[in-house]
Amino acid sequence: MPLIDLANPTRFLGFVGRLVPWLTAVTIVLFAVGLYGAFFLAPDDYQQGATVKIMFIHVPCAWLSMFVYATMAASSLGTLVWRHPLADVSMKAAAPIGAVFTFVCLATGSLWGKPMWGTWWVWDARLTSVLVLFIMYLGLIALWQTIEDPIRGAKAVAVLTLVGAINLPIIKFSVDWWNTLHQPAAVFRLGGPTIDISMLWPLLVTALAATCLFVTLQLLAMKNEIKRRRLRTLRLIEASRPHAVAGTPVVGAAS
């Protein structure tokens, strides 16, 4: 099947139906392999002990928080440049999923920070950037919720997503600057550049598993969104019909 055929939402629905079981299986297998490696094969960190196990979900979620935003930014281009309805759908489906993964990243980071740093939250450069990213996700969701017409809403969200994508590196840079000004000298570095291969491979596998998980969820959410739009179209058709048709069966429902 040529790729261009997927641009038709009906064919896309069929494609999703066939692909999702396979993707689910791949996700589960990858998570099983990655977490087996993380818990049974990877050694404890000599400084952090067993808490390093949190890394195997924290880092994949951090990766997803950025990957999902990149997906949304690419979809925004699809909306603004090619005006493709599937791009709108993809943007809308990704926002809540991205927000959830960003939240999990913050929460697991906090749970990792408490035993290691002694506090739940540090205004560390990385944590702060992720927090700003989380707020941006929530803002995008709020904008989706406010504009009723999905086509007009998609355009507004696309502009904001792209502006956010341009600004994110600058926010990251300025937070790093701010952090070096205010942070006391002894900064605990997460992970660090040297990571042993026995820890690296489970991390990469769980990151891949998380990516597969996101793709699965994204396809399912896109399917829902297409259905939601069809429902909206049908309701508009129903509302614009003369009463003659609605007369017969709806009487019972109206009473």
Partner: peptide, 27 residues
């Protein structure tokens, strides 16, 4: 501009824009 067509866009517009203003505030 994003909230121009909304009746009560003031607060939403601040929510959308405040994260983008962090670099200006920081510097």
């Amino acid at each position: 501009a994003l909230t121009v067509s909304l009746r009560r866009g003031g607060l939403l517009s601040a929510i959308l824009i405040l994260p983008l203003t962090t670099p200006v505030l920081i510097f």
